[in-house]
Amino acid sequence: MTTNGTGTHGAIIEDTMPEEDRPLVELRNAGKSYGNIRALHGVSLTVQSGKVTCVLGDNGAGKSTLIKIISGLHQHTEGEFLVDGTPVRFTTPREALDKGIATVYQDLATVPLMPVWRNFFLGSEMTKGPWPVRRLDIEKMKKTADEELRNMGIVLDDLDQPIGTLSGGQRQSVAIARAVYFGARVLILDEPTAALGVKQSGVVLKYIAAARDRGLGVIFITHNPHHAYMVGDHFSVLRLGTMELSADRSEVSLEELTNHMAGGAELAALKHELAQVRGVDVEELPEAEDLQAPVAASSEGTS
């Protein structure tokens, strides 16, 4: 039997996978309010095994709130949140992690001066020997970290080097491999390419695809439609806390996705006014009706 990786106690990831046709994670008209402030409203999202779900949106669109609900930091105040088809209401990130939902934030939660292998097991170190003289099993941790990184296609010459000496893309890749090893079935990536150049972004996108190929459900949070379109299977665009677009790859082109991300609908509505401003070229701006078809088609699938 082919294994997809092991968790903390050696559990095989694929053995804990739900049925293929059932989402790993699902939000149904979910929302979150902070007092009188409604940060998220009517958001429906599904995460399937072996698929990359891209969530796009500008600052203030609701991406961070969505992450916090799924990762257990905050509770939703409306709608439903289901894991493996069962309604849940997480109170801590540990509860989400116990269900196989892991989040890799932009800061990566690493200690720059510690070796790569130590960061790989940070907070979950392997030990050996009887209590009370148990000690770190350094040799086993190094061997395991090297094997798991190589399984993800990450080859490092020296695992003793401080993780801070790695490039941004390499550090992101180590964080992804760490989450996979510790039993993640759903991997949430918070803007992993935001501060990276073209080459390092390509490294991260490669390992996102590798995680998908190993059967994980990936939620890729980004504001870059080009990065999303390279690896995404489904695209959800948030605007002001609501879902503006939800479409499979076959239902939306990169140009349409970019227009939604860039506020193309608002620009189309203002096309007449912009045409009266000297020096503004409105010929290439999309018409409002050109942006409605993908939304209508996708809403039928999420209702």
Rank of each mutant, 00 (worst) to 15 (best):
T2P: 01
T6K: 01
T6L: 07
T6G: 00
G10M: 01
I13G: 00
D15W: 00
E19F: 05
D21W: 04
E26W: 06
A30H: 05
A30T: 13
A39Q: 04
L40N: 02
G42P: 08
S49D: 02
S49R: 03
G50Q: 02
A61Y: 12
K68D: 07
I69H: 04
Q75K: 12
T77G: 15
T77W: 13
F81I: 15
T86N: 15
T86W: 14
R89G: 13
T92W: 03
R94P: 00
V104R: 08
A109Q: 13
P115S: 12
W117T: 10
F120H: 10
L122Y: 12
T127Q: 04
P130M: 04
P132R: 01
P132H: 01
V133W: 04
R135G: 06
E139G: 14
M141G: 08
M141H: 09
K143Y: 11
A145I: 14
A145Y: 12
D146F: 15
L149H: 02
L156A: 10
D158S: 09
L159C: 12
Q161S: 11
I163R: 09
I163F: 12
G164K: 09
G169H: 05
G169N: 02
Q170T: 05
Q172L: 09
V174T: 11
Y181G: 00
G183C: 04
A184K: 06
V186K: 05
L187S: 09
I188W: 07
I188F: 11
E191V: 12
L196H: 03
G197D: 00
V203H: 04
V204G: 03
K206M: 01
A211F: 04
A211L: 07
R214N: 01
T222E: 02
H223S: 01
H226P: 01
H227S: 03
H227W: 01
M230E: 12
D233T: 11
F235Q: 12
S236I: 15
L240M: 12
S246A: 14
S246C: 08
R249Q: 09
V252L: 07
E256S: 08
M261T: 15
A262W: 13
A268S: 11
A269S: 13
L270C: 08
V280H: 09
D281Y: 08
V282N: 04
E283M: 13
L285T: 06
E287C: 00
E287H: 02
D290C: 02
P294H: 05
S298N: 11
S299F: 08
S299E: 07
G301Q: 11
